[in-house]
Design a binder for these strands. Structure first.
Lengths: 216, 216, 216, 216
DNA sequence: GATGAATGAGCATTCATTCAT
DNA sequence: CATGAATGAATGCTCATTCAT
């Protein structure tokens, strides 16, 4: 006979419980963002919420659990983002808009991205989901590029999937350097978004399309 | 009470010592690459070299010391790489060649890159050097793009420094996904290098130059 | 990466905590006294209090911290002792009383004295305070001897400061041999105190004063 | 059958060997004196003699062995010192001479005394010998005091053995503070020796003897 | 004899997690 | 619900000592 799992129910039963849980989660986000996940102690999280250390385990099974919840939130948003539709009639406008939104999103979630990147180096579970979310992104871009080729506005000699990963990664990595590594930069989001879009426009789309490109 | 002598000399004095040190270094590289730096124990390193744990400290002050030596090696190579000259007369050929070489280099040092990226998240010392090496890269690219603009072959409406970081980062990040994250990919280095070069060619250089571009 | 919070509060928060801390301190005193500070392990201390090793660090930063607390306690008492006033009208009676009190005090704190002496060999911090406390003692004695000379009852050809250190040290060292080294001795405190006082009386005070001396 | 003790012979067989051994011993004395016995590493000793660490065990069984040899040397000298005869006809002159010689001896061996005191806190073997040597001293003094009483020049109401330990310890402890603790002191050996002798003269000997006392 | 490489036991300290109140 | 006390496994590092050359 299997020993009965003594699974303690971690769901808050009261409004106060909900609040405590939320405070712990917020503190975890802040502490992880500041110190990194590995060097953050559970007691740092509880201290950040002005609580006693034991209470943490009333709401989370362990340290990994908060982390996973925070990263799940981020991944959900990222996936939703990736699924945002592009306007097939004006792909470059879509690129510009999406790029701007993307940078804004990344900036607002820089702490979570930082955690994600740190954790993904070790935790296969996390990395797999993280990679999957990005692949989804690239697939979308690839589809758009292919459609552009079909419509005669995409550069002929281009591997759409490869170019998608390259161009998508370009944006993502710039955001990383900018907001996570805090690369000093004089530029603002619209400026970078325009440069990105131009690189896409000239790099991936036929030059004759570029007449309607976003470059000033 | 005067503190005991701290000037322990860690240099190997014999050929055997050199061999041992090299074995430890190699084992460290392998262990860090496999388990990550933080979760690697010193005893993992010595066990990997079939030695007793104490011997490690005969050659390295601590766990950080091997790591730093490994990363210094990589950084030295990276910086040398960044300083490799471009052929000003045929920038696109240079891009193609450099990109191919870069991917090859990254692939051969994937384990060190993995360590570098992991460690740079926590260690300011390391991150600063790592960022500096990349900036050097981008500065070089920026200079090349500016020269191209001066010569009338670079796209006019382009911020050379911004574009440099974007294009440079694009290559780097693809290499990361490919070799460190082991993104499954059907492509080979020449193929990716050609696509990268085309994106540079069309994205950053005037279209009239592109007649001599590397796309088949 | 910002270093994690280091401001761990080591203060007990509950009555139970206070009790635990006190038990650990008592155990440390006993263990240090028995095995000496250097060879005492933290786990010896916790084992002596029937606790797990980790709890020690809830209340003390490290092994040195308990030691310092114990020695501070002793030093505080010693300094207070040194400041006890002498009766200027009857210096020899003061010597007798003080000597008796001193031996009693030393005997009751023999374990702490043992630790102090051991530690003072290595730790400059401790030695300095320890020496300072003794110097305070000697200064006091010196003042008394000088006053005796002024009043015509102190031996003329005496360097009061030198004699003070000699006479003060004589008492201290006898206490050390007696209670720390456990020199077998048939005598009791009053007997030794009387002999000490006589040596002071005849050695430092003019013989004509000695008529009122404490020797039976 | 008892397993045969594989006792390696540690006696030097050559002149060079003798020299090496002596150098190691000298280095040990210096290193112990500087860093203390416990914190001195065997490799500090060999390094101090510009030799490799392994050689140490060619001449000494272990770290304790050199220490014991050094302390044996000291103890032998101390015991010889204690056995030096006093001039029964002029005890105070003897006290003065012996005290001066004692301070000189202590000063010249301050490093060995320092080691002795440190080690005696832990090592029963050493402490026992050390205490025995001192007791021998005190016994001698006691005999002298008793003889003085018999001859009518010693203070009647004095316990000779007790006074011996007190007076002997006084000298010893002053030497310790002076030369080991390096108590800053303006005085020189003759001055202190004279004060010591006066304290003995007036403290232990009948006042009418003091006419021939050594005080100027 | 001499060198320096190699071994491995020993100990302080950290911190996630559980428990008593 | 909440507190903070208690547990104990885990690991980096030191250094006396032995060994191969």
């Amino acid at each position: 006979m299997v020993a009965p799992e003594v699974t303690t129910d971690l769901t808050p039963k009261t409004a106060k419980g909900n609040r405590t849980r939320a405070l712990l989660k917020a503190s975890a986000r802040e502490v992880f963002g500041r110190q990194g996940f590995k060097s953050a102690r559970v007691s740092d999280i509880t201290a950040g919420a002005s609580m006693s250390s034991g209470i943490f385990y009333r709401y989370y099974a362990d340290k990994d659990a908060v982390r996973d919840e925070l990263l799940s939130d981020l991944l959900k948003d990222v996936v939703a983002f990736a699924r945002d539709s592009w306007d097939p009639n004006d792909p470059l406008r879509s690129v510009l808009r999406t790029t701007e939104k993307y940078f804004t999103f990344y900036r607002d979630n820089r702490d979570l991205y930082k955690i994600m990147i740190e954790v993904a180096q070790h935790e296969d579970q996390v990395r797999v989901k993280w990679v999957a979310a990005r692949e989804e992104f690239y697939r979308r871009i690839g589809r758009m590029l292919r459609r552009a080729q079909d419509q005669g506005v995409g550069r002929r000699d281009m591997d759409p999937d490869l170019a998608a990963a390259l161009l998508g990664g370009m944006t993502e990595y710039y955001a990383y350097m900018w907001f996570v590594e805090e690369r000093s930069s004089e530029v603002d989001i619209p400026t970078v978004a325009r440069e990105v879009t131009n690189l896409w426009a000239y790099g991936a789309f036929s030059s004759d399309t570029s007449s309607g490109g976003p470059h000033e």
